[in-house]
Amino acid sequence: MAATGPDLYEPLQIRYPPSPPAAPRSPPAASRRASGTILAVGTAVLLVLGAALAALVILHVQGQAELQAARAELAAAGNPLLPDPNGPWSPRESSAAAQRRKDQLGRWLQGLALGWRYHEGRIYFFSGDRKSWGDAEAACRSAHAHLVSVTSPEEQDYLAREARGGSYWIGLSATGPGGSWRWTDGAPYSQAKSFWAPGQPDSTDYGQWGQESCAQIHPVGNGLWNDHNCNFTFLWICKRDLSPP
Rank of each mutant, 00 (worst) to 15 (best):
S132W: 01
P83R: 00
S26R: 12
R161S: 14
G42M: 02
G106M: 10
G50T: 05
T37P: 06
G165L: 13
L49K: 04
V148S: 00
W89Y: 14
A30M: 10
A29I: 04
L46C: 06
G111Y: 13
E66D: 13
W169E: 07
F126Y: 03
P27L: 12
R117M: 10
H144W: 03
R100L: 02
A113C: 10
R161N: 11
V61P: 07
S203T: 09
D205L: 15
Q156K: 06
T233M: 01
V148A: 04
S132T: 15
L67V: 10
L39T: 09
P245L: 07
G199T: 11
E120V: 11
A65F: 08
R117Y: 11
E162Y: 12
W181H: 11
S94K: 15
G115L: 02
I38D: 13
S132C: 06
D157I: 01
G115M: 07
D157Q: 03
Q13Y: 12
H228P: 06
P18C: 03
Y206H: 10
T37R: 15
P244T: 05
A138K: 08
G207I: 10
G223Q: 04
I38L: 13
E154L: 12
Q62T: 11
A197T: 02
K131W: 01
T4N: 15
S180W: 02
D241L: 03
Q110P: 01
D7P: 02
Q156I: 01
N222I: 08
A22T: 14
L242S: 04
P18A: 01
Q208H: 14
E154N: 14
Q99L: 04
Y168D: 00
P219Y: 00
L82R: 09
I58G: 03
R141L: 12
K193M: 01
F126N: 00
A145Y: 02
G171E: 08
A138T: 07
A98E: 03
L235N: 08
R161C: 08
N231E: 05
A23I: 11
V57I: 03
Q104E: 03
E120W: 07
S203V: 04
E155V: 13
A51P: 12
Y124D: 05
A138D: 02
P80A: 14
S152F: 05
W183E: 06
M1E: 14
A72S: 10
I58W: 10
L12Y: 05
W116D: 02
W169A: 05
S213N: 10
Q200M: 06
E137C: 12
T204F: 13
G121Y: 07
P17I: 06
G106A: 11
I58P: 03
N231H: 06
A160E: 02
H228V: 05
E137M: 13
R25H: 09
I123F: 12
T4C: 14
L46E: 08
T151N: 05
L172V: 01
G128C: 05
P245Y: 05
Y118E: 00
R240G: 00
